[in-house]
Structures are given as C-alpha cells and as structure tokens.
C-alpha cells in the first residue's frame, strides 16, 4: 500500500527501458517490410514506408530459408520428443525404483552436467565422420539427446509426487509401465512442458554443432543458414531480404514463447527451486 507513487515511478522507468529494449527488434521488423532499394539509401525510420512484402516473397521462393526452416522444425521437434521420453523414463527409475548401483549411476549422470558441449564436439565430429553420417538429421539430433539436466529435472519432479499415489496404484494392480504412463506422466505435464520448451528453444538456436556437422548448404538449420548469409552483411541478398529471413526464422520460436511464456517462467522457478 505504501509508496504507491514511487512504485509507479519505478514501473514507468522500467517500461521506458523496455521500449529502448525493443527498438532494435521493431527496427529490424520495419526494415523487413521495406524495399531493398530504399534501404540502400537509408535505413532510418520506424515506419514501414514504402511498404512491401516482396522481401518475404523472395525469402519463400529464392532463398533456401524455407528448406532450412524445415530442417530446424524436424530436428527440434524430434529432439524434444525423444528427450522427453528418455528423460522421463530415466527420471522415473531414479526417483521410484530400487536397483543396484542406483546412487553411483545418478551421480554419474549428474556429473555430466559439468561437461560443456565445447569439450566433446570435436570427438563427436570425428565419430560421425567415421560413420559417414554428417549432414543428416540423425547427426544433428543424437548428440543433443544426452542431456543430464532433463533426467535431473524429471527425477526431482517425480520425487515430489506423493509416494502413496504410486502405492495405491500398485494395490490397484498397476504395473510399472501403467504407473509410469497413467499416473506419473499425466501428473508431470507442467514439468514436461517446461523441459520440452527449453529443449526445443535450445535445439532451435543450437549453433556450434550444426555449424560443424551440417556443412552442406542443403542441410543447414535456420540458425546456421542465417549466419551464412549475414556473413557478407546482406550485400548479396539485399538488406531487406536478410531482415525478412531473420524475422521469418524467429517467428516460430517467438510464437511458441508467446503461447507458453507462463510455463517458461514457472519452469525457471521450478528448476531453481530444487
């Protein structure tokens, strides 16, 4: 109740800062709707005049962006799906089953959190090279499935589900598979959503691994593809087209964010809360 005025003042100040924060994005969005010829002369102004959708038309038809987008969608979706399946299965075992070497195994998995991608991407590269599997979806997906954080989160979440529910289910003649599929998974929708969103965003924005694995222009993901055309800073493709590509490439992930932002923030709270 107290200090209403200064509270408001803070919100107004942060709101002004947010406007500044958004200016670059708005500017890029506006440029994506301006003709290349205009942009050659001046990039100034926050109104899309003269207005054109030609840039997007060019992205769709001429550039390989739709192709890259397809790879990104396939890779991110499959990666997310498989991560959810294997992480929740392993999490259930760690949280609810008794078996030999459970503790050391869990420690081994958690220790994997300390291994950064950069430490192993070269051996991974040589492995896939030996198998002749670079420039495939498999190569883009599989190294990203071994994420200990997923197992860790699901284990923590399953541990928070009352044990009595599972005991009731055992008396109700449920097998481990039934308990997992009919009790644990339905109760884990919030955790699965959060893990899924983060995996998807991570997969979509992955840069280093696709850069070294998907080296053929036809196999680029959208992230790597965009990097390849911004290399010469829009000279060859035209500034407007470059901006349109960026907007086009970000649209799906932005849409996902707008729909699920509630879960994302809640998920951060959950993963931090321990």
């Amino acid at each position: 109740m107290r200090n209403r005025f200064s509270d408001r003042l803070i919100v107004v100040a942060v709101a002004l800062f947010a406007v500044v924060w958004l200016i670059p994005v708005v500017w890029v969005l506006v440029m994506s709707f301006k003709p290349d010829e205009v942009l050659m002369r001046s990039t100034a102004g926050f109104l899309p005049v003269p207005f054109t959708i030609e840039n997007y038309a060019r992205v769709m038809t001429v550039a390989k962006v739709p192709n890259w987008l397809m790879h990104s969608v396939i890779v991110s979706f499959l990666m997310t799906f498989i991560v959810l399946v294997i992480s929740s299965m392993a999490g259930y075992a760690f949280a609810r089953l008794d078996f030999p070497f459970k503790r050391p195994l869990f420690v081994l998995v958690v220790a994997g959190l300390m291994v950064p991608e950069q430490a192993i991407f070269i051996p991974l590269h040589t492995m896939f090279a030996d198998w002749g599997m670079h420039n495939t979806h498999t190569a883009l997906i599989t190294p990203r499935l071994a994420v200990p954080i997923g197992v860790f989160l699901m284990t923590q979440f399953f541990r928070s589900i009352p044990r009595e529910l599972e005991e009731a289910a055992r008396l109700d003649h449920a097998s481990h598979a039934t308990i997992f599929l009919r009790i644990m998974l339905p109760l884990s929708v919030p955790a699965l959503t959060t893990l899924g969103l983060f995996t998807f965003i991570h997969g979509w924005n992955d840069y280093l691994w696709p850069l070294v694995s998907a080296t053929s222009k036809d196999m680029y993901t959208v992230t790597v593809g965009l990097a390849s055309i911004q290399g010469n800073f829009g000279q060859s493709e035209g500034l407007g087209t470059l901006m349109a590509s960026a907007v086009f490439a970000s649209a799906p992930i932005m849409l996902l964010f707008v729909i699920f932002q509630r879960f994302i923030v809640a998920g951060v709270a959950m993963s931090a809360g321990k």
């Binding site: 009352p162 005991e167 009731a168 055992r170 008396l171 109700d172 339905p186």
Partner: peptide, 19 residues
C-alpha cells in the same frame, strides 16, 4: 507382490489420482 494379495487400502491422505 502387493497387487496379488487380495487387499485394498485406504490411505491417510487418500492418495486419489488427481488427474
């Protein structure tokens, strides 16, 4: 195993499946 003992149990916290 528990399921084959022909027993049913009412738990302190009921343990109803919330979903």
């Amino acid at each position: 195993p528990a399921r084959d003992r022909g027993v049913a149990m009412v738990f302190q916290n009921y343990a109803l499946y919330p979903h």
